[in-house]
Computed example of a mutant assay.
Amino acid sequence: MTLLVFGKTGQVATELARLAPDAIFLGRDDADLSNPAACVAAIKRHAPTGVINAAAFTAVDKAEDEEPLATVINGEAPGAMARACAELDIPFVHISTDYVFDGSGQDPWRPDDQTAPIGAYGRSKRAGEDAVRAAGGTHVIMRTSWVFSAHGGNFVKTMLRLGAERDALRIVSDQIGGPTGAADIATTALRALDTIATKPDLYGTYHYSGAPDTSWAGFAKAIFDEAGLSVAVEEIPTTDYPTPAARPLNSRMDCSSLEAAFGIERPDWRAGLKDVIKELNA
């Protein structure tokens, strides 16, 4: 398979490059997602046999002030990619997010649950999902959550930095979800792409997040324990940590349909965390 990946320096794209070094990776200079036509041109120019979109506008708070741009990058560009892939009859995998839901309740979100994003980022990602489905091609939309790795900016690296500077931190404890290693997401995206290339009837929307579900405070404690840092974690409610964009309280994801279709189980994020901290220490 000749693989084309939109994204080059992001967390998932970096892990994809490790797993598929012969793939073609397109950064902003190669295909700017703020120009959807450039994405279409890139697909037609490279003529791949499979495409993964691992690029996105991911600055959740910034999206509140730049929703039109976020909607082009997260909404219109994936739709353009999907239409090009449908025209060329090649499979397409698009990475999405739990932010398409409103975060209510305590039950894990199923892929067919009603979406109701509570912020600009979530609205932009839902627009992308809708556009990918409307393209009518063979695709997998893979919603994930709480991505972490040794690369880029993420919660693990932030906690390690703050934990080295302070002996106590106040961390939100009423937002619950599944931390997900970027390496696991990359592996699953490749497997899904390979599978739908020969079994296109498995197209659709799936959930993939790490297990077990935990809070940000619980995740932080695990990070400090694994890193050998002595940091006291004070658990606080979301209301004590206001942000420009609202965060979903419930990011639990029902991943059973992914396991049924592809045989892929939820990864244990604690194993992924161990690998990430080992890499950072190296």
Rank of each mutant, 00 (worst) to 15 (best):
M1G: 02
L4M: 12
F6P: 12
G7W: 13
A17E: 08
R18M: 07
P21F: 06
A23V: 10
R28V: 13
D30S: 15
A31K: 07
P36F: 01
A37T: 10
I43H: 01
K44V: 11
K44G: 08
R45H: 15
I52W: 13
I52G: 14
T58G: 15
P68T: 15
L69C: 14
V72S: 04
I73H: 01
N74K: 05
N74H: 07
N74I: 09
A80E: 03
C85I: 05
I90Q: 02
Q114D: 11
A120N: 01
E129G: 03
D130S: 12
A134G: 09
R143G: 09
S145G: 07
M159G: 11
R161P: 02
E165Q: 12
L169Y: 03
Q175M: 02
G178I: 01
G178L: 00
A182S: 10
L193R: 10
I196N: 04
I196G: 04
G204F: 07
H207K: 08
H207N: 13
S209V: 04
S215L: 05
W216C: 11
A217V: 07
A217K: 01
A220T: 14
K221T: 15
I223H: 02
E234R: 06
E235V: 13
T238H: 00
P244V: 06
S251Y: 04
R252S: 08
C255W: 02
L258E: 11
L258A: 14
E259H: 09
E259G: 13
G263R: 08
D268Y: 08
W269E: 03
L273Y: 02
L273V: 04
I277S: 06
E279Y: 12
